[in-house]
Every structure is written in structure tokens, then in C-alpha cells.
């Protein structure tokens, strides 16, 4: 049961992060490795506002997301935008993305150092639930906040004009242009949404564990697995995929060494690609 609880917590973190990654991947037509850097920056920004500026936690997170959105859009303007207008293919984009990831990760080391950091929160005893399941208040906050965030993202994508345009652009960018949708503007919004998603997931992961510059890179594989399992470009699929990956990883720890957790994500990703590359909810092969 404890493993199940751990799985739900990990699943919530992966789900939140996967929503942004799936939309970025689909709308920009490549897997963005720099997303790992966004997760790390999100966590370290929040930590800085909270530990050093001593702002309330929620304010720190919101400021961090704003800063992250600005950073993501600036990076897009400086790199991907001109590559897009030159018609660079997905492979070239991906290589640039990997370069950006290295740059972002090194910047974290440069700014905050390589030492392990933590949120300076009072240590609370874990709550004990039936079947001797132990969950900390922080973990409850993570689950609750993830659900709230995913519901807000759902409202945004379902009800607002720009949200619908974002899903339309993810479906078919050429047709979106034909309909008069300013796809560059949609891309800016997508980076904003990715910042919320990556910032929150990075913060949740840091709250549940600790901050190290490599944390985003380690979460990237489960995120990609969740995105592929749910069907690239499908935010709802990404949420379900995230939960499945989180649960499988944690439950596997019950009968395998915990160091095999990434392998579980990798196996699920590979099986998805072999059996149904369009993901659980994708159409066709």
C-alpha cells in the first residue's frame, strides 16, 4: 500500500510535468530536451524566492513560473524562432534542444552550485493512514495542488479561445494557419503553459525530495514515457500516462531494486512505441 501511495505522488508530479511537455513536443514538432532544464530552473527559482528572499511559498512559486515563462520565450525567440522560419527539421531542432539542456544545467551549477539544497521548511511527522501508509503533509499538498492545476489547465484548454487554438495547432499546424490562427502567438502561449507545467513539477519534485542540478534530467525519461504513452500532443493522455508511469515505477520497487525505476519507464515507452506508437488514446497506428 505504501508503494501505491508513493506511486500516486510520483504519478502526480510526472502528470503535471508531462502536460506541458506533450504540448510543446507536438506544437513545435520535436522532443525538447531543454524541458529538463526548465524543471530545474523552476525548482531553483522557487527555492531562491522562498529560502533567500523569504517570500511565502505560493508567491515564490508564482514568481518562479513567471520568470520561467519569460526565460522560455526568450530562448524560443533567440533560437527556435529563426530555425522555424528557415524550415529546420525536427532533428536539427532536437540537437539544439540538447545543447540548450546542457547550457541550462551548467547555468544552474554556475548560479546555485552543485551542492544538494532543500526547502527550509519545518520538518513535520508523516501522517499515518490505514494499512500503515505514511504520507507527509507536503505530499498531500503535492497531490492536491496537482489536481487543482490540472483542472485549471483543462478549463484553459477547453473553454478559452486561445486554449482551443492551442489544441487546434497541436492537431494540425498547417490548417491552423489556413484558419487565420497566428501560430507564433500560440507558440508563445504554449511556452507559458510549459513554464507552469515544468515550474510546478520541478517544485513538487524538489519539495518531495531535494534540489540537485541533475534532477530535471532524471525526470525527463519518465516524462517522455508518459507523453508517448498518452499520445504526443494529448494533454489528457499525458495525465493518464504520467499516473501509469509513476505507479509502475514505484510499485516495481516492491520486487526489484529501486535503481531499476528508470528502466521501468523505458520499457513502457519502448513497448508503447512497438505496439501502439500513437499512444493509448491516439488514433491509427
Amino acid at each position: 500500500m505504501q508503494l501505491l501511495a508513493n506511486g500516486i505522488i510520483m504519478g502526480a508530479i510526472i502528470s503535471v510535468g508531462a502536460v506541458g511537455l506533450t504540448l510543446v513536443s507536438r506544437i513545435l514538432h520535436f522532443f525538447y530536451f531543454g524541458y529538463a532544464g526548465m524543471l530545474v530552473f523552476g525548482a531553483y527559482f522557487t527555492l531562491t524566492f522562498f529560502n533567500f528572499v523569504e517570500l511565502p511559498l505560493v508567491v515564490s512559486l508564482l514568481l518562479s513560473i513567471g520568470l520561467l515563462a519569460a526565460l522560455a520565450i526568450a530562448i524560443d525567440r533567440l533560437t527556435f524562432k529563426s530555425l522555424r522560419s528557415r524550415g529546420t527539421g525536427p532533428f536539427g531542432m532536437m540537437v539544439v534542444g540538447i545543447g540548450l539542456e546542457l547550457l541550462l544545467r551548467s547555468s544552474v551549477r554556475l548560479i546555485w552550485g552543485s551542492d544538494v539544497m532543500r526547502f527550509e521548511l519545518p520538518i513535520k511527522r508523516a501522517l499515518v493512514f490505514p494499512f500503515d501508509v505514511r504520507i507527509t503533509t507536503n505530499q498531500l499538498i503535492i497531490i492536491g495542488a496537482s489536481l487543482l492545476l490540472m483542472y485549471l489547465l483543462h478549463l484553459f484548454l477547453d473553454m478559452t479561445k486561445i486554449g482551443k487554438a492551442m489544441r487546434a495547432t497541436a492537431d494540425n499546424i498547417e490548417l491552423a494557419k489556413v484558419k487565420g490562427i497566428d501560430t507564433e502567438k500560440v507558440i508563445m502561449w504554449t511556452w507559458g503553459l510549459a513554464a507552469i507545467s515544468a515550474g510546478a513539477a520541478g517544485f513538487f519534485l524538489a519539495l518531495d525530495t531535494r534540489l540537485v542540478p541533475i534532477m530535471g534530467w532524471k525526470l525527463l525519461l519518465p516524462l517522455f514515457a508518459a507523453v508517448i504513452l498518452g499520445g504526443v500532443g494529448n494533454p489528457y493522455g499525458a495525465v493518464v500516462g504520467g499516473m501509469v508511469i509513476g505507479l509502475s515505477q514505484e510499485i516495481s520497487a516492491g520486487f526489484m531494486a529501486p535503481s531499476y525505476k528508470p528502466a521501468v519507464a523505458f520499457v513502457i515507452m519502448t513497448l508503447t512505441l512497438l505496439v501502439k506508437p500513437s499512444g493509448l488514446f491516439g488514433r491509427g497506428g
Partner: peptide
């Protein structure tokens, strides 16, 4: 499209994961 011409391509002329009504909304974007 703002001039008053509309074009229906031969292939991929719909947004498959959007509903019928949402597709029409996008037509009126």
C-alpha cells in the same frame, strides 16, 4: 483568410481531436 477567401485542403482539413463545434469555432477564429 481575412480578405474573404476560404480554402478547404484535400487532406488533413479538420482538427481530429477537437469536437465538431470546436472545429467550427476555429473556422470563425
Amino acid at each position: 483568410v481575412r480578405e474573404g477567401l476560404c480554402y478547404v485542403p484535400q487532406e488533413s482539413n479538420i482538427f481530429p481531436t477537437l469536437t465538431v463545434e470546436e472545429n467550427l469555432d476555429m473556422g470563425a477564429f
